[in-house]
Design a protein around this nucleic acid. Structure first.
Lengths: 224, 224
DNA sequence: TAACCGAACCAATCCTGAATTGGTTCGGAT
DNA sequence: ATCCGAACCAATTCAGGATTGGTTCGGTTA
């Protein structure tokens, strides 16, 4: 050991990083190994690493290791935060803005088997013996449309939207044994959406979805 | 074994479910155990379970088990999960589907002071001395449009989308000291969007935003 | 005295192999 | 023909140990 002043260790560490040429986000050797490789005590190395971390050159996490670049952004979008800020009216507005475009993508990208599934879910909803089962298949239908867009990010956003919707409309589940009337407004609207998707009619699907959601919105207000 | 017709097995299974009284989302015994408990072959049991699954009473997954109720959809908006499933192309597709509709809402709902802010952010982006600062003001502009929609849920979804976008396109930050050229394609596109919003022209705003994003998409491909 | 080093320990994380579980196939018995 | 048991497959879970950054403590050196 020649000189292990703080600055000497730091510069030797920078040297190592420059030489190592590791990819951005790459992982450094464990502190113990690195200390031995640089012929430095672990404490001194940690002090130097702390400096680099303060500079934003590296970031560390227990059990994971030390990595170059900046710490990746924190993970979960807080659905609870959205739920507290929003209200049923906003949820409906967001659905009317968002879901028609998802339907448009679905019309352009759905696979034949997905179209079959869409028709099946639609039928199941029509024949549902209770409101609860109807809503179950209605949900399934709307998510199938998201899956049919073949865009996992759109699907993720749709799931987020639905999670918020469920949280906001909590406790308003219709659990009556009464079944939806055979002329329930949604049935024909669903059919229009699914047929537009089957016909690869993007604009038609978006339009049909928009009409459907506006109709749902109208009935929501009537129930107040 | 008395009678193990399909319907008999099915009714015995329903009986078990009713008796077991497991909580919604609860887990059924493994097929092998359950088959033995009901004194039924596994194949027959599976046929009955398939029926229940078609009815939406239970759902199954290899390695996990069989559960009551609906298949849970990722309730947590785990951005990391989205990031891992998606790719830059999908991100662009989602933006093109989503952001024009946000712009439409913004045109209908933006307050005068928000319109002032929009113009300000647009100017700042035009005069940005570096690409990094340009992107910063570009981000600010797009989020301001989200705020102008006056729909906190739409804004939350937009933030989620942006978080994914940043994570996916990470490491491709342009940090050159060069500034965007004065005739950068985005400048006029931004202006069209902002003016459409200022004029309360929802369709125009959506259209301008769509053109803008398609243009960005095109330049992304050129850079490859 | 003060700084530094090595060693041990802690908690979070990763890793690996075994066990579990739904999905499938095949031969034999009824 | 049909059903059953057994074996196998692939996805998932689970448990234990190994790894890793964070911390503490006593001994050594300057």
């Amino acid at each position: 050991m020649i000189e292990n002043t703080d600055s000497a260790v730091l510069s030797r560490l920078r040297d190592f990083l420059a030489t190592a040429q590791l990819p951005d986000g790459g992982r450094l050797p464990p502190e113990r190994d690195l200390a031995e490789a640089l012929d430095v005590g672990r404490g001194a190395l940690r002090k130097a690493l702390a400096t680099l971390q303060a500079e934003g050159v590296v970031w560390r996490h227990v059990g994971k290791g030390t990595f170059t670049g900046e710490r990746p952004i924190d993970t979960v979008a807080d659905i609870n935060a959205m739920v507290q800020r929003t209200n049923p009216l906003e949820v409906m507005g967001a659905r009317i803005a968002f879901e028609p475009e998802v339907a448009r993508c679905a019309a352009l990208n759905a696979t034949p088997s997905q179209i079959t599934e869409l028709r099946s879910a639609m039928m199941k909803a029509q024949q549902a013996p209770t409101w609860r089962l109807y809503e179950q298949w209605d949900n399934r239908l709307h998510r199938l449309i998201g899956e049919s867009s073949q865009n996992s990010l759109l699907l993720g956003l749709l799931d987020t939207l639905n999670a918020v919707r469920r949280a906001v409309t909590w406790g308003r589940l219709r659990d009556t044994p009464v079944r939806p009337p055979p002329d329930h407004h949604s049935f024909e609207e669903h059919a229009r959406i699914v047929e537009a998707i089957a016909n690869r009619d993007g604009a038609g699907a978006a339009d049909a979805m928009r009409r459907h959601l506006r109709s749902v919105e109208g009935h929501m207000r009537d129930m107040r």
